[in-house]
Design a protein around this nucleic acid. Structure first.
Lengths: 332, 332
DNA sequence: CTGAAAGCGCTTACAG
DNA sequence: CTGAAAGCGCTTACAG
């Protein structure tokens, strides 16, 4: 049951290990036809499969990248991840996905683990709380690109949505439909992540543009398990909002659950727009108006940028912004 | 920028590489306190990180398992995969997920690739069309377990749903609610996979139990993109069905889209049950009655079984069946 | 209590 | 056109 190695093939084919290795790596330049044939026969006879671990050790490249996502539960995350895998696959790279679960400690653990595993580069949705680690990667010019979030002070390129615009698109649509009492709910007030900050900013600016005063009690940031309770309160205000922008997919789901449970009809009692074009948006009853992120393009861009870095191609270290698009349906 | 290796640590700490290695592997048995301390200091000073690739080569174990899923688009698949990752994580194993996309050629490619990468074992949702490969793994007593589907002739344990019962639960519920004209739609007639076959069988047996004649035109098996067209036809039959069992999540979604598009009210015009408890079932309007698979338990069982095999623990090579549960909501 | 040496399965510069 | 030798960064049986 001993594993067959390159030495066995060499012996069987009566050539040296070097020659077999050349053959495997398709460096045929001066190789005789008969030699090739003998090697091929030996490989088949022995059922030889190269050991990639040994190759990686020698070549100092695993042809593998790591992806550390902040939270796998977001629709955005799974779609982006899929796109990354697609691109890597066509470049013959493998992908290891790790879920940091919004926990900097886990993030640190995964970064170290993946580097120990010698992955050639990393795409990370940064929690933001491991700046020393990020800096260390930068210092050793290890290939990294950020996704979804960025760190201002840090010279690591990030792939991001144009978040302000995403929120603005939603607010504008509400306004066009005649709404002026517009609330917004986001998750995770604690870690001040880029998308949340920027989306809130976009919401505020858009309201200002229409001379609608910003009401602080219309702007809620809580963990998703508290969304329903907050909503309950919000909708019992004297002048309760009539439209709500959900900062992400998890918030949207909580709003829909709440509406169903409490008999709010959408959009008659409450208009809703969600950022993130969730899978069920088009066939929900009513179909949900959303602001879609170009998840596939974003994942593709991140993967391509990272692969270029890995291949030491000159890349400008600049972040990229992607445009959201409003998917008008029936919830407004 | 040279990588720091165990040799550098040894030099810095003025001990041998062996001693450093012992330290790293926590074989402290006879190690002097001062030695330990010196090594620890050297590691910190140099920022040493062990190279897992080198270790794997020597130890002939990568502490990594591969998971080859038939189709990542199924809700079932993502949930099972997550459970597998959880279990592996607590056992300090890593997971590489590959999507065969229901294509035996891709499946073969991934199996070979993962074995070349020296993963310690494989969980596969088999397409069924690579029996020679499966047999080869069996012959070399390579650890494998199947998920969701099995191959009768093959002595590889499989983790499966009690599929007949899943369909029966749905049919029984329809009947209890007074329905007798009950149709069923499944995907993929081509590859005769275990779940599809067994669910159809369960549907037929349940109807027989209630003396309801099986109408062949009520039983549809097509690719998901054709579901809506078939439904159109089905619902215009002379005696059209009034209730439909969706064989999996993708079919359910197509049915919901169709109903929405064509103004069928659920359950009044059409009652629906889906096998697979999709994420939106509870807050869809109306909430969808489903048959849930214990995805977490199933993933956990598969991972545990595989890890046991890897650790050469005696395991009975027997398949396991899991019980479905009916989630009664408002679509019937 | 610690070290020298062999070896895991490859690749690669070099020699011929 | 092909081979001998060194080396990737570890681990481990053995010697002392």
């Amino acid at each position: 049951m001993k594993n067959v190695t390159i030495a066995d093939v060499a012996e069987q084919a009566e050539v040296s290990k070097s020659t077999v290795s050349q053959y495997l790596n398709k460096r045929y330049d001066y190789m005789g036809e008969k030699t090739k044939q003998r090697i091929q026969d030996a490989i088949e006879k022995l059922g030889y499969q190269p050991n990639i671990v040994a190759r990686s050790l020698k070549q100092k490249s695993t042809k593998t990248i790591g992806v550390i996502v902040a939270n796998i539960l977001h629709n955005f995350t799974t779609e982006v991840t899929r796109a990354i895998e697609d691109v890597c696959h066509t470049s013959d790279f493998h992908t290891i996905i790790c879920n940091a679960d919004d926990d900097p400690v886990k993030e640190k653990h995964y970064i170290e683990m993946l580097r120990a595993k010698q992955v050639d580069g990393l795409i990370v949705f940064p929690t933001g709380d491991n700046k020393d680690l990020y800096q260390k990667m930068l210092d050793s010019s290890y290939p990294v690109v950020f996704m979804d979030r960025n760190l201002e002070e840090m010279d690591i390129p990030a792939i991001m949505l144009h978040n302000e615009k995403a929120a603005a698109l939603a607010v504008e649509h509400f306004v066009e439909k005649g709404y002026r009492r517009i609330g917004m709910i986001t998750t995770s007030i604690l870690n001040h992540t880029t998308p949340r900050k920027e989306r809130v900013e976009g919401y505020k600016k858009a309201l200002q543009k229409y001379d609608i005063p910003i009401q602080t009690d219309y702007l809620i940031s809580v963990e998703s398990q508290s969304v329903q309770a907050e909503l309950e309160e919000l909708l019992h205000l004297e002048r309760a909002p009539e439209a709500i922008l959900a900062g992400n997919d998890l918030v949207l789901i909580e709003i829909l659950k709440f509406a169903k449970l409490n008999g709010y009809r959408i959009p008659d009692d409450l208009a809703v727009i969600g950022i993130d074009d969730v899978s069920f948006a088009s066939f929900y009853v009513p179909a949900i108006t959303t602001v879609a992120q170009p998840t596939f393009k974003m994942g593709k861009a991140a993967a391509e940028m990272l692969l270029k870095k890995i291949q030491k191609q000159k890349t400008e270290n600049t972040s990229l912004r992607f445009e959201p698009t409003l998917m008008i349906r029936d919830s407004v």
